[in-house]
Amino acid sequence: MKNLSIAPTKYTPSINLDANTGIFEIIGKSYPENTFEFYQPMMEWVENYFSSEPQEQTTVNLEIIYFNSSSSKLFFDFFDIFDAKKSKHAICINWIYDAENENAEEAGEDFIEDFTDLKINLVVKDA
C-alpha cells in the first residue's frame, strides 16, 4: 500500500503515514478552515491500512503545536479508529508537546481519560 505524505501549510501539519514501518507522524499546527475535509484522506488511509496488511506494531507520533476546536474533535475521531482496532493490533500513540504548551498537555490528558484502554503516552519535550 502507498504511503501518505502531506506537506505542511501555514494552517495544517505535515502528515507522514508509512505503511511499511507502521509509523505515523503528524507534526505542526492544525487550524484549517475545514478541518474534517482536510483530514479526510488521512482518515480513509488509516481505515484502509488496517483492512489491508497492517504492521505488527503501529506507532502514531502526534506533535501538534497549535490546534483549533474542530481539530480536537477530529483527533477524538482519529483515535476512535485505533480504539476499534486495539484488540487485534499493537498500537501506541505518542502525544508529544513542549513543556510550556499547557493546551496540548490538557488535550493529551483528555484523550487518556476518554480512551481508557488505548495506549496513549504523553511525551513532554524539554524546552
Binding site: 476546536s69 480536537s72 474533535k73 493546551n103 490538557e106 483528555d110 476518554d114
Partner: peptide, 17 residues
C-alpha cells in the same frame, strides 16, 4: 453520549483557551 461528552469538554477547553 460519548460525542456529547467530548464536545462539552472540547468547548470548555476552547473557551478557556
Amino acid at each position: 453520549e460519548k460525542d456529547l461528552r467530548r464536545q462539552t469538554k472540547i468547548i470548555q477547553r476552547s473557551d478557556h483557551r
